[in-house]
Design a protein around this nucleic acid. Sequence first.
DNA 1: CCACATGTAAGTAAAATGATGACAAGGCTG
DNA 2: CAGCCTTGTCATCATTTTACTTACATGTGG
Lengths: 142, 142
Amino acid sequence: MNSQYSIAVHILTLLDSSSGPMGSVEIADSVGVNPVVIRTVTGLLRRAGLLTTQRGVAGAELTRSARQISLLDVYRAVDAPDSVLKVHQNPNLACPVGAGIQRALEDIYGEAQAALEAHLAEVTLADITRAVHQTAPQQEVR
Amino acid sequence: MNSQYSIAVHILTLLDSSSGPMGSVEIADSVGVNPVVIRTVTGLLRRAGLLTTQRGVAGAELTRSARQISLLDVYRAVDAPDSVLKVHQNPNLACPVGAGIQRALEDIYGEAQAALEAHLAEVTLADITRAVHQTAPQQEVR
DNA sequence: CCACATGTAAGTAAAATGATGACAAGGCTG
DNA sequence: CAGCCTTGTCATCATTTTACTTACATGTGG
């Protein structure tokens, strides 16, 4: 799943905007996907220590302030690729270029990925919540 | 096609390393894909002004020095996404968060993409060629 | 014990990706 | 000019990825 990341941010923003814990069905209604998808993503976020959920009891809750959760934390929590840029697979190793291109690309892609992640590290969930409620008229969820 | 970008860099590096023009079959042998794929990508690169090819006559050639071709030029030339991070599609507009999340994410993703592209802009094809031939023992292609 | 919530596996549909065959269009050479 | 080779492009097909959904085991609380 690739929009998992956006869904994860949506979920966390929702919890940050909410006055209390929210169940997967309720969250699913806002995100616009099946509750199973929500439970899958909250599972990843729970394992990353960003929120708590408990089997049998309704509701997910943030484990810490939205100011202390960066978008990079979220990126690392979900099944996001190590590098968004992909190296091609079958270069001819008998050719000098084919033999060296993968390593060269991996290096550059790694640097580019670091630049992208560095920006995500600068943005917090609180920034997102603010931006979201600035666009839409203020109104607490629930 | 998503590995198009890596294939494009491979092709250009090959031309930079070569002593003369190379045909699609020859290039395909180094890249490890069908010649049709090569011709598709060279078509994109030609339209972007990075190389020249001519129907009927074998061989592709760079239009300018490898030092004057950045990896961002290549990125823009191929069918690469405007943003590598994707926003989810069906948020509930009746929910405050659902209504504002897409715009908020687009803004952040745009900034992150800019950071990634800024790095690609700093790397030239000449840098790649150097790195490639540093890994593998020096040896001119052809 | 029963209603309800989460966690997770399994299955299916739809879309993206990759690979390849076919052929028209155009140049080159004998 | 005639045959041969090369590029440009379209169409098809297999594979993989993504998305969506059903089903059900596991656990909580009244």
